[in-house]
Amino acid sequence: MKKLSARRRHPLAALVVLLFALAATGGLYAAFAPAEKAQADSAQSLATEEGKKLYSVGCASCHGTSGQGTHNGPSLVGVGAAAVDFQVGTGRMPAQQPGAQVPRKKAIYDQAQIDQLAAYIASLGPGPAIPTKQQYSPDGADIANGGQLFRTNCAQCHNSTGKGGALSEGKFAPTLDGVDPKHLYEAMLTGPQNMPNFPDSTMPQKEKKDIIGYLAQVDSSKSSSPGGLELGGLGPVSEGLFAWIFGLGAMITVAIWVAAHTAKARKS
């Protein structure tokens, strides 16, 4: 104990305390954060002929040798080409690790390979096909109607301008910023992971297009925010932080200047 107190004035003492604090914070964080480890297994099959070959290398270990599913992955019979194009095209599949949710990442397969995989899965059972550009292109969409539909069907999870939000137990609705219109369309059609699907029977093709049009207007890198910094588009929490840090921070800085004594002619 005595040694410890003798050393607490050491110039590096603060650094040591800081390191301990950081380690403790990190430990706490690790305890709360959904587990994260494992490695991407990059299936780099050069076989261009069929998706089946790609499938048996990259997917079969979880989804079964013929897509029937295992306890590690759901059955792919009848999910359709659109689901494959979405999951693999956004890099979610193949998954890196089990967890609350499989996040978006850089796609491992190129579009030609994805199409082959999709063709193979589609052959297992009928399901939604990959939409055409005409279906998902935001051109000619009714933006206002898209906005209304978005607020009714999507905003509750994805936020009114698609910035994403939290779900239960570490799951989340991802941000829609920068998502390819084709993938937006496929997500609505197929309902990936915990997202419900919005089939054409309840949300016709034109309405999906309108929603994509709305997102292109309000949630893209070109979207305008007339009032200035968007602050993440997250609403009052980020506004409150801004008001405290920059607003009140500036006020206090100014107040310190106003109240400080002016430099004297000579040091006392």
Binding site: R151, T152, Q156, H158, A173, G235, V237, E239, L241
Partner: peptide, 14 residues
Amino acid sequence: DQVSTGAQPDWYMG
């Protein structure tokens, strides 16, 4: 019948 996630009040009601 509509809502957006991240429904928060201004900070002083937080």
